[in-house]
Amino acid sequence: MPAVMTAYVRFVDALNYRIGRFMMYGIFIMLGVLLWSSISKTFFYPSLWTLEAAQFAMVSYYILGGPYSMQLGSHVRMDLFYGNWSDRKKAWIDAFTIFFLIFFLGVLLYGAWDSTSYSLKYGERSPSAWRPYMWPIKVVMCIGFLLMLLQAISELFKDIARIRGEAL
């Protein structure tokens, strides 16, 4: 494989590995927010911010953890025929189908970028009682979609290497 492709795969995999390992601890943020929600509803006046803060934490958790999940191969896969195929045939099928994912992620990133720019331009706020600004979570979504797109391209390069009988 060309050195540029190898360097790209190593860089993207290392980046998404570190971000994914960091985001694994995001569950504790959600746990803390939801625990505070339960305590405040029981003993104090209910907090207005807890539901949306937990939703924002959850979105960050799975959007930024998605590329790491793809890297580990722990995403959902229809395994009716796939499990019986050779590694080379799997690589061919994966290399073909990843183009659909790359197109889909490109469309998502375009829409997220457009939505984020709108949110920043007009100071968009949530329609809830808490009314937080929406741009921070939209920026997280743009970063997550970009990282997932980069990881999908990395997986394509790995599939090409497997088709050629090389290891990355």
Rank of each mutant, 00 (worst) to 15 (best):
M1E: 03
A3K: 12
V4L: 10
M5C: 04
A7H: 03
R10Q: 09
A14Q: 05
L15R: 00
L15D: 01
R18M: 05
G20N: 09
G20Q: 15
R21K: 14
M23V: 11
M24F: 12
G26W: 07
I27Y: 10
F28W: 13
F28N: 11
M30P: 02
M30Q: 13
G32P: 05
V33M: 13
V33R: 13
L35S: 15
W36E: 15
W36L: 15
S38P: 11
F43M: 12
F44M: 05
F44Q: 03
F44W: 10
Y45V: 09
P46T: 09
L48H: 10
W49G: 02
E52M: 03
F56E: 12
F56Y: 15
A57Q: 06
A57N: 03
A57G: 08
V59S: 14
V59K: 11
V59R: 12
Y62V: 15
L64D: 08
G66N: 09
Y68S: 02
Y68L: 06
Y68W: 08
M70Y: 09
M70T: 04
Q71S: 05
G73T: 07
G73M: 02
H75K: 14
H75T: 14
V76L: 15
M78H: 13
M78K: 15
L80Y: 12
L80K: 13
F81N: 09
Y82T: 01
G83L: 08
G83N: 15
G83S: 15
N84K: 12
W85L: 14
D87V: 11
D87H: 08
D87E: 14
D87Y: 10
R88P: 07
K90L: 10
K90F: 08
A91Y: 02
D94P: 14
A95R: 04
A95I: 00
F96L: 14
T97H: 13
T97Q: 11
I98V: 13
F100M: 13
L101N: 14
F104I: 04
F104G: 12
L108N: 03
L109G: 00
W113A: 07
W113P: 00
W113L: 07
D114K: 05
D114N: 06
S115M: 10
S115R: 05
T116S: 11
S119D: 08
L120H: 00
L120E: 06
K121N: 12
Y122A: 03
G123L: 05
E124L: 12
S126M: 03
P127S: 00
P127T: 03
P127W: 03
S128G: 10
M134E: 02
M134A: 06
W135A: 03
I137N: 09
I137L: 07
I137V: 10
I137D: 06
K138F: 01
V139F: 02
V140R: 00
C142V: 11
C142F: 01
I143M: 07
G144D: 01
G144W: 01
F145L: 08
L146A: 02
L147K: 03
L147M: 07
M148W: 06
Q151M: 01
Q151E: 04
A152V: 03
S154M: 00
S154E: 01
E155V: 09
L156N: 06
D159C: 13
I160S: 09
I160W: 12
I160Q: 08
A161H: 03
R162A: 09
L168W: 11
L168A: 04
